[in-house]
Design a protein around this nucleic acid. Structure first.
Lengths: 252, 252
DNA sequence: TAGTGGTCTAGACCACAAT
DNA sequence: TTGTGGTCTAGACCACTAC
């Protein structure tokens, strides 16, 4: 088609066009590497480079030793991190930002969590404005969307703030979510900072999030403040190619 | 070191450790592929896989035919997309969000732009709530940070809104920035939506942003609204590994 | 047993830089 | 001319799955 660039990019472009044209519809299987090597008159390794490129784009997926398949859900799920607003204290059942956005996009959210007590290392101490070695309550989450893992999060809270209160352990009391929890102990959260970046996944993230090779993760570092006091900080990691963070700000 | 995984991941881990330990300090040159192949008792192609992995992590950089170098600036630049607030109309010279954040992190910002008149395709028409084929003012930007390209943006505005006004062409009047410009024609912007995601770069983006292979781009789709009317929409693209988007919201 | 993706190898050629 | 990163090849082996 286009005679520019090295062969593996041309082969990738050719396959990309065949997928876009519907010749290989979503869910269908691509020919085996060795057959593609014959039809494109290239070596198997060259085919693999082309395949790897499409994989990084999230277009196709290789399933173990079963074959190479066109992605069935290139559709991006939307995480509506709208405003951080307290819900009107009506009858609605408590929910989390993740569950809220999942249901808004027509799916079902579940999550596992595990809470431990640890001491703050230097990084966390800085983020929480405490001293290294101070006790913190750490909670690790794995969020699933319709059953498949899509997001991990690790949350840190200074133990000194919640010790002896009903919200000492997240995910156990009646108040769900960071903002309502701290409301109940008279430490109202009034601001949140979020740092967003993209980076390649760690091997662990590849495994837990079932990431295809080459895709980046979108990470958010979020810290809640009550006045000048940081009350919770979290690292949130999700697959870059199937997530969209949406913000709506007022301009004043 | 660690006997797990295929050789190329072990070689990558080994090089990563050598970089972290300071054996290869930032800016230094790694041995040539062929030499690494000898010392690690592997084929050159295997070395290249390991190198490609480190490249995708932003740890090293290959410069044409000069060699492989440890990245000198793994330091992430900060783009402070704080609140969208109108500046107090004092004596300060007009500036842009990009210039503001660049100077906040100690660098110097410059940008080129080119404005054309086009007609809206279906996507842009939807985003601007106009009809396909309606005239739009399109401006393409290339932003540089201390001289090196770091961000591209394309902006669309419905021509019908600005025709015959002093702000018909962006970047020509006295008002700099979207919000001040529309203030001057009595169409005050009061909200902005931003959609953020990560994806692999297009070949064009690889070239214009001088991206090393494997790194993802962080993209923002931003739309300004005056009431319910979209007045400007833009696609902003930056390298994922050296950019950080920072938000600070009030919680109400 | 056969098919599949994944990996490795030894050797080759290219374009480009510096010398 | 030499050295470099980048690419391609033909063939091989492995782990896993399906039959």
């Amino acid at each position: 088609m286009s005679p520019n660039g090295p062969p593996y990019t041309r082969i990738a472009a050719s396959l990309r066009a065949q997928i876009a044209s519907g010749e290989y519809p979503p869910g269908s299987r691509l020919p085996p590497h060795r057959e593609l090597a014959r039809t494109h008159a290239a070596a198997q390794e060259t085919i693999r480079r082309a395949i790897a490129q499409l994989q990084a784009e999230g277009l196709i997926e290789t399933r173990g030793q079963h074959g190479t398949f066109v992605q069935t859900r290139p559709t991006i799920r939307r995480i509506a991190n709208d405003h951080y607003q307290r819900r009107p204290t009506t009858t609605g059942e408590p929910t989390s930002p993740f569950a809220h956005s999942a249901e808004a996009s027509g799916g079902h959210a579940t999550w596992d969590h595990e809470t431990t007590r640890e001491t703050a290392d230097e990084t966390i101490a800085t983020r929480l404005a405490i001293q290294p070695g101070d006790p913190v309550v750490v909670t690790r989450y794995l969020y699933r969307y319709d059953g498949t893992p899509t997001q991990t999060a690790v949350s840190w809270e200074p133990a000194a703030l919640t010790a002896g209160t009903p919200i000492e352990l997240p995910e156990t009391g009646t108040a769900v979510g960071v903002i309502p929890r701290f409301d109940t102990i008279g430490l109202p959260i009034d601001s949140v900072t979020e740092d967003i970046t993209a980076r390649p996944p760690t091997p662990t993230e590849v495994q837990t999030l079932a990431l295809p090779p080459g895709v980046a993760v979108l990470t958010m570092r979020r810290t809640y403040h009550a006045g000048e006091t940081p009350v919770e900080t979290a690292d949130i990691v999700m697959a870059g190619h199937r997530n969209l963070l949406t913000y709506r700000h007022a301009v004043t």
